[in-house]
């Protein structure tokens, strides 16, 4: 087989000129061409027909065995995936069965640290309403305490204050839960 040097993707002259001056580039080009001719002068070794046939036969065998092994491979893959899925599901179910029932209040309180629970600094803009409610609640508590201690004197004014207090409590409670 005669091999032609056909490096389509390059312009050797341009490449050489970018690396050497014009004179050097020409010299290097000639030397490379002379070297290439040396290779071309000698006959390229050929694989024998049996060798080529063996290569082709190997590929044919690979293709045939690939087709035969594809289905069992898919089945094995699906079976393995199903086993993993079953094992994971069983594991999750076992975990749920054996874990103690969560106590919501406890879990929530565990998630809030002590500093956060009492710190006014943690209030954001959206929590201002809550602060107002808390302040009102505190005032009402004071009022209730005063009523209980009979600070206002007579029975009538005392019962009126209690009613008023209760109404306020209900209002706050309703507003609070309505957000």
């Amino acid at each position: 087989m005669k091999i032609k040097m056909k490096n389509d993707n390059e312009n050797l002259n341009e490449l050489l000129k970018s690396l050497y001056n014009a004179e050097q580039a020409e010299l290097v080009r000639q030397q490379i061409q002379a070297g290439d001719k040396l290779f071309a002068q000698f006959k390229t070794h050929q694989p024998d027909a049996a060798n080529i046939e063996a290569v082709k036969q190997n590929i044919r065998d690979k293709i045939t065995s690939g087709k035969h092994t594809a289905l069992p491979r898919i089945i094995k893959f699906i079976a393995a995936a199903a086993c993993i899925l079953i094992a994971v599901s069983a594991g999750i179910m076992w975990m749920f069965k054996n874990s103690p029932q969560p106590q919501v209040g406890k879990i929530i309180s565990q998630n809030i640290t002590e500093e956060n629970w009492f710190s006014d600094e943690q209030y954001t803009q959206n929590d201002k309403d809550l602060a107002v409610f808390e302040e009102q609640y505190r005032q009402l508590q004071d009022l209730l305490l005063a009523v209980k201690l009979d600070e206002n004197g007579d029975y009538e004014s005392r019962t009126g204050s209690v009613d008023e207090l209760e109404t306020s409590f209900i209002e706050i409670k309703t507003s609070f839960w309505e957000g």
Binding site: M1, I3, T44, P47, N51, A54, V55, N58, I59
Partner: peptide, 28 residues
Amino acid sequence: YASRCYGYFYRLSGNADTAGDLLNELFL
């Protein structure tokens, strides 16, 4: 491609059997 690849292997290994084996491996 067999001729050129075989030629490459043969020139470098200097052995026809090696070149043949490498050619086979190459196409696999």
